[in-house]
Amino acid sequence: MTVQNRSRGWIVVVYLGLLAFVIPWYWPADDMRHAYGLPLWVIATLVALLLTSVFTAWVFLSWPEDDS
């Protein structure tokens, strides 16, 4: 993975992390619906966080063993 792609990877990770913050911000304040015990806004936020985790792991694993 080149330095440029790594920077892009980090930016995508940050955007996904921000998405996990923006979801509850714009979710209707009076929405009490839930599924499997988790409010819907929690499920949506957890999905965004899981995507952030997957992408973070991918950037780490794509890093070369040694580069100058």
Binding site: A20, T45, V59
Partner: peptide, 27 residues
């Protein structure tokens, strides 16, 4: 209440910030 889902987010943020400096610091 459920708003403390913050904890999952900030524990993940720690790993994301490692991405910014840990590999280079290790070398």
């Amino acid at each position: 209440g459920f708003g403390w889902l913050i904890a999952v987010h900030y524990m993940l943020a720690i790993v994301v910030f490692y991405l910014a400096f840990a590999p280079k610091l290790h070398t």
